[in-house]
Design a protein around this nucleic acid. Structure first.
Length: 228
DNA sequence: GCGTGATCATGA
DNA sequence: TCATGATCACGC
C-alpha cells in the first residue's frame, strides 16, 4: 500500500478496515496469521502498518512520515476496554542536559496518533479478531498537562541519578517500565554521583486507564458533563 | 544494543 | 483480577 498523502486519506483507509478481521487483512497482503501472539507480540501492529501504508519500518520517525502521524494498535478486551498499556518510546538514561517536555520524544510521539482498536479477547482466535473504528488524536490541554507532569517527575528522577528507584507504580498516566529483550539487557545510566553504570533499558508507557479515557471521550457528545 | 512493533506471566 | 516487571521478534 502506498503511503497516505493526507490525514483524510489515512482516515478513509482506516475507517474502511473497521469490522474486518485479522485474517482478512493478512490475506490481502498474502501473509500467514500466527496461532497466537505469544511469540508474535508486535505482529498485529505491523500488519496494520503495512495495510495502511506506513513507511517508517524500524526508523525513529513517525509511521506515516509525510503527514507526521504515529499509529498505535490498541488491544481491546472482552469488556470493551484496553487490555494493555501502550509503549511510547525508550527513556534516555544517560546524562540529561537541557531536555524539556517541549523537546521530549514522548511529546513528539504523542502529538498526532492514529489509534486503531483491535479485538484482543483470548476467547477469539487471532485470525477472527476484528478491527474497530479508528481515532485520530492529539492530546487536549488537560491530557497534555497530565502527560507533562508525569514526564517531568520521572525525568527529574533520572536527572538525579535515581533510575533504580523508579517503579511502574509512579506516574498517573505515564509510567516507566523495562523495555528490553530480557532482564539481563543493559544500557548506560548515570548514578547519584554522576558516574555511569550499567542498568536495564526502560521505556515510557501510557497506562491503560489513560487510553481508555481517550477512546471513551471520542464516543461521547461534546458537552457531556458525565464523569465516571 | 537500540530502535521498531508490542504482549506475556506471575505475584500481590 | 490486574498491573508490574519480564519478555518475544526483527532489522541493522
Amino acid at each position: 500500500m502506498r503511503p497516505p498523502r493526507s490525514e483524510a486519506e489515512l482516515m478513509s483507509r482506516a475507517r474502511g478496515l473497521a469490522g474486518r478481521t485479522i485474517g482478512q487483512l493478512a490475506a490481502g497482503l498474502g501473509m500467514q496469521v500466527p496461532e497466537n501472539t505469544r511469540r508474535a507480540k508486535g505482529w498485529v501492529g505491523q500488519l496494520l502498518e503495512h495495510t495502511l501504508g506506513a513507511t517508517a519500518g524500524s526508523k525513529s520517525v513517525p509511521d506515516f512520515e509525510r503527514i507526521g502521524v504515529e499509529m498505535k494498535t490498541i488491544p481491546i478486551n472482552a469488556r470493551g476496554g484496553p487490555s494493555e498499556s501502550t509503549y511510547v518510546c525508550t527513556a534516555w538514561l544517560k546524562e540529561l542536559v537541557g531536555l524539556t517536555w517541549e523537546t521530549s520524544r514522548v511529546r513528539k510521539k504523542l502529538a498526532r496518533v492514529l489509534w486503531v482498536p483491535v479485538q484482543a479477547d483470548k476467547a477469539v482466535a487471532l485470525v477472527d479478531r476484528r478491527v474497530g473504528s479508528p481515532l485520530l488524536w492529539s492530546p487536549d490541554a488537560e491530557e497534555e498537562e497530565l502527560l507533562r507532569g508525569d514526564w517531568e517527575e520521572l525525568t527529574d528522577l533520572i536527572r538525579l541519578g535515581q533510575v533504580e528507584e523508579i517503579t511502574a507504580r509512579m506516574g498517573t498516566v505515564l509510567q516507566i517500565r523495562p523495555k528490553a529483550a530480557d532482564s539481563r539487557a543493559t544500557t548506560w545510566g548515570v548514578d547519584e554521583t554522576g558516574h555511569r553504570f550499567k542498568t536495564l533499558p526502560r521505556g515510557f508507557y501510557l497506562r491503560a486507564r489513560f487510553t481508555a479515557e481517550v477512546l471513551r471521550r471520542s464516543f461521547v457528545m461534546p458537552g457531556d458533563t458525565h464523569r465516571s
